[in-house]
């Protein structure tokens, strides 16, 4: 068995249940630590897969450029509260594949926090943005006919409002609530809903305007240099 497989199995069957068990056994406020450790443990297999594949230089640098574009779109906010980062992560996932999409989102979230501030939200943002790239890659990477900007925009909007936004709000639930109840979680999700809709609209607009030009640039690059044929 490969080393990474053993590592993944260990994570899945020992570490994650162990964390969950410990979290329920200890008295006191362990919600944040337990939930964050879970998030980190869930991310490890993705990173491990990327590391053990030993990505080629061309793939690595192209990914870095897409990641840098995503970070720049978050850091250089041209219009207030307009965050196109998720959309660019999604486009990277669509063009380069689910795994690269995840890495682009997670590293992008981590890198952009060097410009703002690392905080309790960092692991959650890494997971949420990474997952956005992963989902987009899984759905659209091999399916060219589905890459219609309007369809992508609608899909992006609903993914953010229903999946990515609540995932980010989970961080708030685990950080600032005194008792974790469904009622409290629901209150936080409701409070975050307007914000998530705003985020979703930003993502949809960006996908509508930029998905075609960006995707065609990436496709051209792949054809011109014959890269990533295997992946």
């Amino acid at each position: 068995m490969r080393k990474s497989t053993i590592c993944n199995l260990l994570l899945l069957f020992v570490l994650i249940p162990g964390t969950l068990f410990l979290g329920t056994q200890l008295s006191g406020r362990w919600y944040y630590l337990t939930s964050t450790m879970m998030i980190v443990e869930v991310m490890i297999p993705f990173f491990l897969a990327f590391e053990t594949r030993r990505p080629q230089a061309r793939e690595l640098v192209t990914l870095a450029v897409m990641c840098a574009l995503a970070v720049a779109s978050r850091v250089v906010m041209l219009i207030p509260n307009f965050k196109p980062m998720t959309a660019i992560v999604m486009i990277s996932g669509i063009a380069l594949g689910a795994q690269s999409g995840f890495v682009c989102g997670a590293v992008g979230a981590f890198a952009s926090n060097f410009f703002f501030s690392q905080g309790p939200w960092t692991p959650w943002q890494m997971m949420a943005y990474g997952f956005a790239g992963f989902l987009a890659g899984g759905l659209f990477h091999k399916r060219f006919p589905l890459r219609n900007p309007a369809a992508l925009a609608v899909w992006g909007f609903f993914t953010i409002v229903l999946v990515i936004g609540p995932l980010l709000d989970c961080c708030t639930v685990f950080t600032v609530s005194s008792r974790i109840t469904w009622k409290y979680a629901l209150a936080v999700f409701t409070a975050g809903f307007a914000y998530n809709v705003q985020h979703g609209i930003a993502c949809a607009v960006t996908l509508l305007l930029f998905s075609r030009p960006l995707l065609s640039k990436l496709e051209r690059l792949k054809t011109k240099y014959g890269m990533m044929d295997a992946g």
């Binding site: 990327f50 590391e51 640098v61 450029v65 840098a68 720049a72 850091v75 250089v76 590293v107 410009f115």
Partner: peptide
């Protein structure tokens, strides 16, 4: 520990001012 990912991180952080 994570050579490919940390190289990616360094390149991303370097590219931001470069892009600007």
């Amino acid at each position: 520990l994570i050579p490919a990912l940390s190289l990616l991180l360094v390149m991303v952080l370097r590219m931001i001012p470069n892009l600007a």
